[in-house]
Amino acid sequence: MKKLPPLLVYTVLRLLAFLVPLAILWFFFPIFREFWWLAALFAALIGMSISLLFLRTPLSATSREIYERRAARRPGKTTDEDVEDGETPEA
């Protein structure tokens, strides 16, 4: 079985961290049906808190994969550090 990409896993978990609290607020608290924007605001705050507390590992895996893809994309390009290392100071 093929492993799912970390970006997909992290995106789905972040969406669930927002949508589950939104659904709970919407269905179990009738006042939030009238003030939908307040339910969305609270769900966003709850989702952000959940992701900061529990989604650190998927975030790290996603960041690592993005970094590796970007590093592999331009293997022959010279960077500023390479140019500076090649410079010799004139006395």
Rank of each mutant, 00 (worst) to 15 (best):
D85A: 15
I50F: 15
S51F: 04
T62Y: 04
P5W: 11
F32Q: 01
F35Y: 03
T79G: 08
W37F: 09
M1E: 04
F29Y: 06
R70P: 00
R69L: 01
P58H: 04
S63Q: 08
F28D: 13
T57P: 00
L7W: 04
W26K: 07
I66T: 14
R69S: 01
A91K: 14
D85E: 11
F42H: 12
A40Y: 02
L38D: 00
E87N: 09
P58Y: 05
Y10E: 03
W37E: 06
L45R: 07
T79S: 13
F35E: 05
P6V: 07
S60M: 10
R70H: 07
P89D: 15
L4T: 15
E87K: 14
R70K: 09
P58N: 03
R64Q: 15
K77D: 13
R69C: 00
R74W: 15
P89V: 07
W26R: 12
S51H: 07
E34H: 08
P89Q: 13
L15M: 13
S63L: 07
P5L: 11
V83P: 10
D85Y: 02
S51P: 02
S49N: 09
P30G: 08
I31N: 03
L7F: 08
T62W: 08
G47E: 12
L55I: 00
A61P: 05
E84V: 13
L55S: 01
R69A: 00
L22K: 05
S49P: 00
I24S: 02
F28P: 00
V9D: 02
D80A: 01
V12H: 01
P89E: 15
V12S: 01
L15Y: 10
W36P: 08
L13A: 03
G76T: 06
L25R: 13
I50W: 14
L7P: 03
R70G: 01
R74A: 04
Y67S: 00
S63T: 13
P5M: 09
R70S: 04
T78D: 10
S60Y: 08
F54Y: 11
P89Y: 12
A72M: 05
E68H: 14
L41S: 03
L25Q: 11
F27K: 12
R14V: 06
E87W: 12
T88L: 14
F28Q: 14
E68N: 14
T11D: 00
V83F: 10
L55W: 04
L55E: 04
F18I: 14
I31D: 06
A91V: 13
Y10Q: 07
T79C: 03
W37C: 02
F42Y: 15
G47D: 12
K77N: 08
A91F: 14
G86E: 14
R70V: 06
L19F: 13
K77S: 11
P75Y: 05
D82H: 07
E34C: 01
A17F: 04
L22T: 14
S49C: 09
W36N: 06
T78W: 11
T78E: 14
E65F: 09
E84T: 12
